[in-house]
Simulated assay, not measured.
Amino acid sequence: MKIIVGLGNPTKEYAGTRHNVGFSVIYNISDAYNIPVETKKHKALIGKGIIEGEKVILAMPQTYMNLSGESVRELMDYYKCDLSDLIVIYDDISLDVGKLRIRAKGSAGGHNGIKNIIAQLGTQEFTRIKIGVGEKPAKMDLADYVLGRFSKEEQPIIRESADRAREAVCEMITHDVASAMNKFN
């Protein structure tokens, strides 16, 4: 079983923000594979289904970004999954808008949601798909930037990157992380 976690902030006010691209990918996967993500469990909205013959849990933590690890820890403990079965999808300001970067492990890179996941799991050894949201303007506060929405020009790029992230998840399920890295990085 794979646990696929998209990071974001709950409530409608954050829908469509840069910080919520992880949620956008979960919705994309949910739609493509007909896996409703509406059960409240483990401090998340989750959905159970099958992708390419593999059981999956789709999850959107409802703890707010900075405490995402609490939900991830509960999911990992309850389903007794190995770290190799976890895929975390989130925004990255160091990548151009829509660019994907897949990693098998790594540091938090300043992302508070990932910092909390690393703290809760006690390791950096989990797969992640980072989606570029662009670098913040020099005179803008980081929180205001990541909680802001994409421009009209950026919206189709982000929708296409959510499609590519879904395809990358499928590649990881049918092959492995290295194959997804070769194909999508």
Rank of each mutant, 00 (worst) to 15 (best):
M1W: 14
K2S: 12
K2W: 08
G8Y: 03
N9G: 00
Y14M: 09
G16Q: 10
T17D: 07
R18Q: 02
H19Y: 07
N20M: 07
V21L: 14
F23A: 02
S24Y: 05
N28H: 15
S30I: 00
S30D: 08
I35E: 00
V37Q: 05
V37A: 05
T39C: 02
K43F: 00
K43E: 01
A44E: 06
L45C: 02
I50S: 06
I50N: 04
V56L: 10
L58M: 05
L58S: 11
L58A: 07
P61I: 14
P61Y: 04
Q62I: 12
Y64H: 03
Y64K: 01
M65F: 11
N66H: 11
L67G: 01
L67K: 08
V72Y: 07
E74D: 15
M76C: 12
C81A: 11
C81F: 00
S84W: 15
L86M: 13
I89K: 09
I89H: 09
D91R: 03
D92F: 02
S94C: 08
L95F: 10
L95R: 05
K99R: 13
I102P: 12
R103F: 01
K105E: 14
K105L: 06
S107I: 02
G109C: 06
G109Q: 07
G110T: 11
H111E: 13
H111Y: 08
H111T: 13
I114G: 10
N116T: 09
I117A: 03
G122S: 06
E125Y: 03
E125R: 04
F126K: 07
F126A: 11
T127V: 08
R128V: 02
I129V: 10
K130W: 01
K130H: 05
I131K: 12
K136L: 00
K136C: 00
P137V: 00
P137N: 02
A138M: 12
M140D: 00
L142R: 11
Y145C: 01
V146H: 05
F150I: 09
S151K: 14
E153D: 15
E153P: 12
I157C: 06
S161Q: 14
A162S: 11
D163F: 15
R166G: 02
R166I: 08
E167T: 10
A168P: 11
C170N: 10
C170P: 07
E171F: 06
I173T: 11
T174W: 01
N182T: 08
N182D: 08
